[in-house]
Design a protein around this nucleic acid. Structure first.
Lengths: 197, 197
DNA sequence: TGTTTTCTTGATTGACGAGTCAATAAAAAC
DNA sequence: GTTTTTATTGACTCGTCAATCAAGAAAACA
């Protein structure tokens, strides 16, 4: 029953299954068979489309980053002014989609993987660089020379708050996370009010 | 050649070797044999003293937390006043010992492990709770009702900055990390100057 | 001296899992 | 209607590794 054009469908299903399995296991100790089973295909097919296991993980992470990037652009579209744009990025970082336990687990393991895998490391660098550049761009007019410094602070705070969610067993609270980072931004802006935006 | 009283010596050597191996591998994908070899013993001996592999990891993490706790107490001993005490905790968090790449790698993987292992989770909870309580205790007189909030912010920022170090390939800069968190504290204190300390 | 306790390991088992391959099946192309 | 392409899998190979066990070797003890 080989319908043509199955490849993108299978790839998407496998990626989705990968994220779900990482969420279930809480680690990368997930077998290709488990992923394949959840996606409704054989493990051989997973290897057929992705090659090695690491490629599956990378594809999953690339997908998460793509979704995140799209969310950032969406939030930015409705933002007016520098401060509003920064807050949009913060909001996107804690978007409901990215805040799912399985996605958080994937992020956490991505950090681990980045220590070993060249590809993962490169991918993570791209994300961090883009985030930093986005933040700095809008921070410059607001805090001048301290832009990089504040951007690093916001970035670290986002990561820290995000990762800590992985351990909470209470239902995750997006709003609290967003408020925390936003307050930090507010503090920085109050200190150095270069311009109004 | 069985000298008596080898147990504590072997345990310590195995724990040290575990941290080193995690640092080398960047993950928990480390075999008991590798750990044992580095410690200069057979893998059977590692099992003899620790039982299962997970127990070795937990012992390593317990050791790291113990060292950290001791460092906090040391720093606190020289601190005068609430603010100084909070800064002491921050400094201890980025103590040179805890800032070694291998230790950072262990922390990162500890977070991952805490999602699966009951024991790891409990251990991490203890650490987070103690940190939070320490911070809150000294923050209360400084920022009043916002103490918990600020403590969470500092905690998250420490975690975020700490974890981001895992990816830098430049030699790690303790001072920069400490300064970043300290500045955050300064901002919070400037905003709500309830008392002077 | 003989026995028990502590320390230690080589060898083995048993399970599990990544990746490969040959084979099947159906659609499309010719 | 034959051939090629795409989709798909069961079965198999080859490693690896956690955990166990029986056994040896030296101290302590009786």
């Amino acid at each position: 029953m080989p319908k043509l054009g199955m490849e993108p469908i299978r790839r998407a299903a496998l990626i989705k299954a990968t994220i779900a399995e990482i969420g279930r296991a809480g680690s990368l100790d997930v077998t290709v068979s488990q992923i394949a089973r959840r996606a409704g295909v054989s493990s051989a097919l997973a290897h057929h489309y992705f090659g090695a296991k690491e490629q599956i993980f990378l594809a999953a992470m690339r997908h998460i980053l793509t979704v995140f990037g799209a969310q950032v652009r969406t939030e930015l579209r409705g933002a007016r002014g520098h401060r509003s744009r920064i807050e949009a990025i913060i909001t996107a970082s804690f978007d409901a989609e990215n805040f799912r336990p399985a996605v958080i687990a994937a992020w956490l393991n991505f950090y681990v993987q980045a220590q070993t895998s060249k590809d993962a490391r490169r991918l993570l660098r791209v994300y961090q660089k883009r985030l930093r550049s986005n933040l700095t761009h809008d921070l410059r007019p607001l805090v001048g020379g301290r832009a990089e410094r504040v951007a690093d602070g916001i970035g670290a705070l986002i990561d820290g708050v995000y990762i800590r969610q992985a351990l909470k067993d209470a239902p995750l609270r997006r709003d609290g996370a967003i408020a925390l980072v936003r307050d930090y931004l507010a503090l920085e802006l109050e200190t150095t009010p270069l311009a109004t935006a």
